[in-house]
Design a protein around this nucleic acid. Sequence first.
DNA 1: AGCTCCAGTTGATCTGCATCAAGGCGCATC
DNA 2: GATGCGCCTTGATGCAGATCAACTGGAGCT
Lengths: 205, 205
Amino acid sequence: MAHRDGRERPAAGAFRMLDAGTALFRPGDAATSLFAVRQGMIKTVHLSEDGHERIIAFHVPGEVFGLDAFSSDSHRCEAVAVEHSVCCELPLPARAERPQVQGLLPAVVALLGRAAAPSLPLARGSARERVTRFLRDLAERLRRHGLDGERLRLSMSRSDIANFLDTRIETVSRTLQQLHRMNAICVHGSTVDIIDLPASDAALP
Amino acid sequence: MAHRDGRERPAAGAFRMLDAGTALFRPGDAATSLFAVRQGMIKTVHLSEDGHERIIAFHVPGEVFGLDAFSSDSHRCEAVAVEHSVCCELPLPARAERPQVQGLLPAVVALLGRAAAPSLPLARGSARERVTRFLRDLAERLRRHGLDGERLRLSMSRSDIANFLDTRIETVSRTLQQLHRMNAICVHGSTVDIIDLPASDAALP
DNA sequence: AGCTCCAGTTGATCTGCATCAAGGCGCATC
DNA sequence: GATGCGCCTTGATGCAGATCAACTGGAGCT
């Protein structure tokens, strides 16, 4: 049941197939739906007035996103597939029928958990803390949705990770190698096996 | 109409007077209300598992907070008065009467705007960018609620600011002095006059 | 008045990360 | 195959900010 390109209201649960790099919505687009990731990975990106891009979140299968537009009716972020992905569209009632939204909202809020606000900013502390937190967070969210949290496929580019963590690609690369050398993880290309990632990044050489 | 200490449901709009340093709610407390700041300033603080505190936001008069508990029914953050403050309690219906919440929510969401998620993480970029953004953000929110955005009273400690911006008190202090010296602001103690704070912190010596 | 105590400022030094720069490797296209 | 182009890694250098430390000024105390 693929999504049709017309302007009519999409059927609830319609699928959207996205190649890597294609956008699901852009800033200013009317926010008529939420989306659930089924496969792949979606990043949401905030474009600041000065043209700079900041990655807000990477969404894994099972997570819902698109709520950035709740107060304004139009999106403020851009959602882009990091790799080939499949999303499920959850259409919202139009303004006129808004009362129905209210029935939906509690469920949505429950679903979201922390998806709406990446409530624990990952871009804090040292580079190693950031990378560690990033990996642990990703693993935890994968596990929460029944996926493997031991072997991660970092399908986003190093540059995306660096942007997300407010650091540089070189630093991301070096930090991953460093964690590899200390046997906390095992990096091969875009795959990372988590071996023994310290919970709190306190006592390490 | 002061708040009474009993366990009965508070009247809608009951006031809470808070001395500096006293908590309005703590992590784990049942979330029976939202709060609106009427006077003073409230900080919300997240306590991580390893005992470290991270300040999430400083709320100015007119802002609503306490939404951190929406999915869980109990607070995950702590709300503490930074100075002597007055809050207005907005009781939420109990679970059983939840349908009513749904009528409330759209209004709440509209009210909140960006209050729920400090959606633009301030702890990004260089120290001067952080401090500049912090001041501009505070000024804008004060203005939005009809208060003076030119003269700021930083009633929180330098240490709170540093925590919030993920840096050190010495750096906050130096950066404020630096901005003072370049005539962007005028610092006298806890009062800061905004003179000509650069919008984008690009071209500065 | 003395006194301590705490918040803030300022100075000196050290270090982690940004920056600049040079390969390495996979994957296209010719 | 050769060539070019991204993406990643690795090395060398410099600087912003963390850290350590000393000093100041105000509030509260006896």
